[in-house]
């Protein structure tokens, strides 16, 4: 353990921890834009600058040392912070009302901490680079006028997914998050999992047609056999979002394109909503009683005529375990083991 002093608060942390880790442990806020707990530190935004033993360092990268004296609000650090945040704002789209991240935006949070004054902003030259929003991906957009180049999306794509569809491109003021060959997102190697969008601290990577759910229900994804933990976002009688469950040991919050965005079938107008019975070759609506009576009587007739083995049941790998159990109980109770599901397909 290493003991240090953060604004005179004594804190002991494990060797190899950073100043940022130590500050978090004692609940001391250090602003940052590019740090993400699940990703390697980048140290690009320089907003977490603090003074450690009299030297300016980035808290997210600087390792703690024994007896270290850290001053969070040191003047030199504050000047860097202020300049970075003010200047990022001069390059940032001002229209916060239409931004999905409004009130949930890291840049707003840090700007609020730094304290932005109209006088200072008036001294600075504003220049938001005009770039078209990349709307090619059906699920989320890239709006580069809201991008602060924190690189979180790039690191997410590389470290979390290993897809590496994104990287920094160009230089100087033209620096931008780009795909290989600066192609549109939908034409790139991006697998549309949306992990980057989930972590974007601003509205640069934003969900299309976003609707905030009224409530969330913890469940499991209904697609492949991995069984990712999810939070189903519900608004009224519709599923409007799916979010990975960070506490789930299987996916640790991660989801793929189908799991995160492929929930529309639940709300789809083509859903079957009443039983149907075939009359004169046409399937027509019927009541539950009509339908179930018909099924029961036909099953009985066929069993009576040809024995229970003239009946077969196909259960489902997509239904719940309970559904399957009950299904096997019924089929076997009717006297046959002609029972299978699509395990082999």
């Amino acid at each position: 353990m290493v003991t240090l002093y953060i604004d005179d608060i004594q804190v002991s942390v494990e060797k190899g921890s950073t100043i940022f880790d130590a500050a978090q442990k004692v609940g001391v806020y250090i602003p940052t834009l590019c740090h993400h707990p699940e990703l390697h530190t980048f140290g690009g935004c320089r907003v977490c600058m603090v003074e450690a033993n009299g030297k300016l360092v980035t808290a997210c990268r600087a390792p703690v040392t024994d007896g270290m004296v850290v001053r969070i609000d040191a003047e030199g650090a504050r000047k860097v912070q202020r300049m970075v945040v003010e200047l990022l704002l001069t390059k940032h789209n001002e229209d916060c009302q239409t931004c999905v991240k409004d009130s949930n935006c890291k840049l707003q949070e840090v700007a609020n901490y730094v304290g932005i004054t109209p006088e200072r902003m008036a001294m600075l030259r504003r220049s938001v680079t005009e770039v078209e929003i990349d709307e090619s991906n059906p699920f989320f957009n890239i709006d580069r006028t809201r991008c602060i180049l924190c690189g979180i999306c790039i690191r997410t794509c590389e470290e979390i997914n290993g897809v590496t569809a994104l990287d920094f491109g160009f230089r100087g003021e033209h620096t931008a998050v780009v795909t290989m060959g600066n192609k549109k997102l939908a034409e790139s190697t991006c697998e549309s999992c949306g992990e980057c969008m989930e972590r974007c601290p601003t509205g640069a990577l934003a969900r299309k047609n976003y609707e905030r759910p009224n409530r969330e229900v913890k469940s499991v994804c209904g697609y492949c056999g991995v069984g990712c933990g999810i939070h189903l976002g519900v608004r009224g009688d519709r599923v409007v979002s799916v979010r990975g469950d960070k506490d789930n040991p299987v996916n640790k919050g991660q989801l793929c394109v189908k799991g995160r965005f492929g929930y529309n079938f639940v709300n789809h107008p083509d859903r079957l909503t009443t039983p149907l019975i075939k009359r004169d070759g046409e399937l027509v609506e019927a009541s539950w009683d009509e339908a179930l009576d018909l099924v029961a009587s036909r099953f009985k007739e066929i069993i009576d005529e040809s024995g229970p083995n003239a009946l077969g049941g196909i259960s489902s790998a997509r239904c719940t375990t309970e559904d399957n159990y009950v299904f096997t109980r019924l089929i076997r109770s009717l006297g046959t083991n002609n029972l299978d599901h699509c395990a082999r397909l």
Binding site: C221, G225, A317, T321, N324, A343
Partner: peptide, 12 residues
Amino acid sequence: QNNVQGACDMGA
């Protein structure tokens, strides 16, 4: 599939 293991476990 999401519950192919469960269906097998249930003896489907």
